[in-house]
Design a protein around this nucleic acid. Sequence first.
DNA 1: CACATTAATATGTGCATGCATATTATCTTA
DNA 2: TAAGATAATATGCATGCACATATTAATGTG
Lengths: 233, 233
Amino acid sequence: MTLTDTNSWTGIREVLLRRIHNRIWQPGELIPHEADLAEEFGCARTTVNRALRDLAESGLVIRKRRAGTRVAINPPQRATLTIPIIREEVESLGRSYRHSILERNLRPLPPMLHGAFQVSLSEDVLFLKTLHFSDERPYAFEERHINLDAAPDARDLAFNEISANEWLVHNAPYTHGDLSFFAVNADETLCGKLDATTGTALFAMERITWAGEMPITHVRLIFAPGYRMRTEI
Amino acid sequence: MTLTDTNSWTGIREVLLRRIHNRIWQPGELIPHEADLAEEFGCARTTVNRALRDLAESGLVIRKRRAGTRVAINPPQRATLTIPIIREEVESLGRSYRHSILERNLRPLPPMLHGAFQVSLSEDVLFLKTLHFSDERPYAFEERHINLDAAPDARDLAFNEISANEWLVHNAPYTHGDLSFFAVNADETLCGKLDATTGTALFAMERITWAGEMPITHVRLIFAPGYRMRTEI
DNA sequence: CACATTAATATGTGCATGCATATTATCTTA
DNA sequence: TAAGATAATATGCATGCACATATTAATGTG
């Protein structure tokens, strides 16, 4: 028997969670309101509120003013992915990291991105092809467009020391972005770079970030064969 | 000029966020403590606390007792994925959903899962192969193992009406799980099921869930060609 | 000087209270 | 009776205060 400290908001959250798991409160059912729970647990309403707010954040209960709090019918299965800087991901596995710039030039924004980079850009964008290595084995291949209006300093950087990924994180923080994951077949070019045989299924990620209205960068990362993105829920 | 209500915790959060974005507080730098900020904004410390707590949750600042609050050096790029029930995902796109059970039988737990399903299981597990359709076109192929110790009622269900996915969400809630994403090549069997040509790169997801110590289910979902998992950050 | 002890301090959390706000239920009124 | 105004109510949030807790800085001691 685990005694839960019913006087802390985390403790109360655990008790409420158990009731939901044990079907004492059925999905869709209205649960007692804050004041009643506060009385039951002998604590302030604020404390119950904190616990319920946390459960609502994780999607387990739905709260509406005046309508009350009810157990979610379809608890949305949320997973928080941590998308690390590649160098850190590699190094955290105890391997050595290195990257190499395969291509670097200025070019007009490719039509594919005109929609995403809604703002009409005055000039060329910086285009980079980078190969990331883990213990000298290819880890991921990166294609990136950088909006020089958003990060003018990038124009003069070679990105040999610090990767564009890392530099941007530190020098052009974004406010929001779109992220997507998908699978691609390795084509001729990718094979050579990623040590794959033609056709191998590769895990890929694409990301576009903005600072307010201003698009910053577009990246497409294709990982070497066998890559898995993991998380806990 | 956007006037931010500096008297609400969200307003204060925005102001702090701007300062971080504008490098008024550099990454790694210690920011004023709650009491000072409260005085500056003319509000209670609790309100500043709420704003800072929120920024800490999103990983933008690191807070330590006595040590104070500092701007994160590598703001971890977190993304929250919502993994919906397939039916809902399909229907939310305005398409009709249908699923069909291709195989259903009891079998011993495959060795591959002995590690994950740590507990030694007394008996067979329920194995299911399901094909999910969107507007009658194949959407995803599912292979699933269900621990009948955790969900005994599943033994007598055909899962023709409601998919195992949905039934489990409602009838065997989990406390935690492992989730991973990767890419696979379509083999002969998959091709037929998913309307793919041999070798096509397919996006796949694998998930194992537990209720406390008790493993509930293992699923492997392979999506039809072209699938993208999207989210905003 | 190295190490343990103690004090100082910033954040974390709980409480009582009051008011704000969204939403539902009820009561008017045409 | 239907539509609109009004009251009731559950959650949301701000405040001021007190105390808990983790961590650092200062201090004392062998």
